[in-house]
Structure formats: structure tokens, C-alpha cells
């Protein structure tokens, strides 16, 4: 609920007409190439980036009241746009996003975009030449991006929608939501929760305390790693997947196709339970130690499911 509220609040911010205040207005445009390399740096505020109908880089809105101006350079396939601050503001606190820039930027759809900010909420959509988006405290909404897609925040939430290609999503504390991704995707958080519906063929998920709930379709290679957080994965339409999982005390629940062909190798080293709803095989227990171990095969055994835990519970169930 909290997440929904904050997302709506962000959306509201982005939709509101720019308020007239002490912030300086900006309205600039440059003709650029269809596959322009574009670099944007905005330390704080809100930024929305959309594909333009023509080969133009356009920026409108207001700039940070503490800024001393901006730099827009466009030459030889490169365009860079930065909000400039007095040197005395180095090392300053950028957390007052309300005083920051409010910008609407258009770039050619085929651009390759690099965006960096600190306390900035960024909403970017429809760029197919590659996107590298990073912010420290702000939220990221990224949709319909293609090619190489890097989304990184430290504290912010990341909402990824219908992105494709080679996607990297990482936060420390923020929550990650991904829907409709295809290609190859890596999710990484320390505390943040991960909720994903993905059809990516390769998926890797790494969390420390965060909980992860994934609904995957057709994924061929899946890597799962958690320390304390619980991971719940449903993997549909995958009959010979290669799955590697590791947990310390987090629980792992893996829902797999009933017709899966795979060799299963699951071990709980100290206290964890293994529940197998796939076959009649039951875990064996070490005579001289606490380890439980389950080893069996289904079908031709073409795929592999290797999971290890220290004290978490592992459950494999047919979908």
C-alpha cells in the first residue's frame, strides 16, 4: 500500500504543470542525429524524458533555484545537458527535491541515453538506443526501453515496465517492480523488495534482506541468491531450465512445470528443511552432521536445479 501511494505521488508530481516560482524557466532545442549519444545530469528535482517525433533534443521546464545556469552542448553526435551549480555547493545536501529542476526532455527514440542525478525522480520512456539511468535518492520509472538498460538507485524505488534487451536493475534500499521485461535481466537489492513478472530468458536475482516474488515465463537460466530474504519464484513454460540458488537463512519456494526434465541437487547444511512435492524422493540426512540432501531426476534430466541453503527452508512444487 505504501508503495502504491508513493508511486501515485510521484506520478502526480510528474503530471502537475510546472509551478511558477523562483526557478528559472528553460526552453531549448537542438537538431541532433537519430542515434544521438545524449548525456544528462540533473542533481535534484523531477525529470521526464520522452521520445521526440523528430530528430530534436528539447528541454523545457524550470531549473533548480540554487543552480547558476545550465550547459547544453551538441556536437558531432554528442549532446550533453547539465544543470550547473556554484562550486561552493559541492558536497552539499541535495535532498530538497522540491527546490530542484522540473524538466521535460525529448530525445530521438533511437538515442543512447545516459542520465545521472542525486535527488531526482526520473521517468523515462520509449528510448531504444540504450539507457543508463542512475539516481541516488530519487525514484525511477522506466518503460519501453531497449538495448542495454541500466537502472540504478541507492534509496529510490525502481519501476520497470516492458523493457527489453540486457537489463540491469540495482538498488540498495529501494523496492524494485518489474513487469513485462524480455531479454536478459539482473535484479539486485540489499534491503529492497523485488516484485517481477518477466519473460526474460536469463534472470538473475540477488538480495540480502529483501523479499522477492517472481513470476517468470520461459526463463532458461535462473540464478537466485538471498541471505535472509525469502524468494518465491513461479517458473512457467520452462521444461529444461538451469537453476542455481543459494540462501543462508532465507526460504526459497520454487514452482516449476510438472513436466520439467531436470536433475535436482538440493542441500540444507544446518537446520533447513527440504520439501519435495515433485516426486516421492525424500531428503537423506547425514549420519555425522546436520546436512540434509536431496538428489533426484525427472524426465531426461536435461535441465538442472542446484540449490543450497544453510538454515532456510527449500520447497519445490509443481505449478
Amino acid at each position: 500500500m505504501k508503495a502504491i501511494l508513493s508511486k501515485n505521488a510521484l506520478l502526480l508530481c510528474l503530471l502537475l504543470p510546472f509551478a511558477a516560482n523562483a526557478q528559472e524557466p528553460i526552453d531549448e532545442s537542438r537538431s541532433v542525429s537519430a542515434n544521438e549519444r545524449i548525456s544528462i545530469e540533473v542533481m535534484r528535482g523531477t525529470v521526464r524524458i520522452r521520445p521526440s517525433d523528430d530528430n530534436v533534443f528539447r528541454v523545457r521546464g524550470t531549473i533548480d533555484e540554487d543552480a547558476e545556469g545550465y550547459t547544453l552542448e551538441s556536437d558531432n553526435g554528442f549532446t550533453s545537458f547539465e544543470i550547473d551549480y556554484p562550486r561552493s555547493s559541492r558536497g552539499r545536501n541535495w535532498s530538497d527535491a522540491d527546490d530542484g529542476s522540473e524538466l521535460e526532455i525529448e530525445v530521438p527514440q533511437g538515442s543512447e541515453l545516459e542520465f545521472e542525478g542525486v535527488s531526482v525522480d526520473i521517468d523515462v520512456m520509449g528510448i531504444t538506443g540504450g539507457s543508463d539511468i542512475s539516481t541516488v535518492n530519487g525514484d525511477i520509472i522506466a518503460s519501453e526501453l531497449g538495448n542495454f538498460v541500466n537502472l540504478s538507485a541507492v534509496n529510490g524505488e525502481i519501476d520497470s515496465r516492458n523493457n527489453s534487451g540486457r537489463i540491469d536493475i540495482s538498488t540498495i534500499n529501494g523496492e524494485v517492480t518489474d513487469n513485462g521485461s524480455t531479454g536478459r535481466i539482473d535484479y539486485s537489492t540489499i534491503n529492497g523488495e523485488i516484485r517481477a513478472n518477466s519473460s526474460a530468458t536469463e534472470v538473475s536475482i540477488s538480495t540480502v534482506n529483501g523479499e522477492a516474488v517472481l513470476s517468470l515465463a520461459g526463463t532458461e537460466v535462473l540464478e537466485l541468491s538471498t541471505v535472509n530474504g525469502d524468494i518465491d519464484v513461479r517458473l512457467a513454460d520452462a521444461l529444461t531450465p538451469r537453476i542455481d540458488g543459494s540462501t543462508v537463512s532465507g526460504d526459497l519456494r520454487l514452482g516449476l512445470e510438472p513436466g520439467i526434465s531436470a536433475s535436482f541437487d538440493i542441500s540444507a547444511n544446518s537446520g533447513g528443511d527440504i520439501e519435495n512435492d515433485f516426486s516421492d524422493d525424500r531428503p537423506s540426512r547425514d549420519r555425522y552432521g546436520p546436512r540434509k540432501h536431496l538428489n533426484f531426476s525427472t524426465g531426461t534430466g536435461a535441465g538442472s536445479v542446484n540449490i543450497t541453503t544453510v538454515s532456510g527452508d527449500i520447497e519445490i512444487v509443481p505449478l
Binding site: 545530469e41 551549480y85 559541492r90 558536497g91 545521472e116 542525478g117 542525486v118 543508463d132 542512475s134 541516488v136 540504478s152 541507492v154
Partner: peptide
């Protein structure tokens, strides 16, 4: 990458 955010 993050380094650049503060090393402007």
C-alpha cells in the same frame, strides 16, 4: 558510475 555523481 556513482562516483561521478559527487565528483562533478
Amino acid at each position: 558510475r556513482l562516483l561521478r555523481l559527487v565528483d562533478e
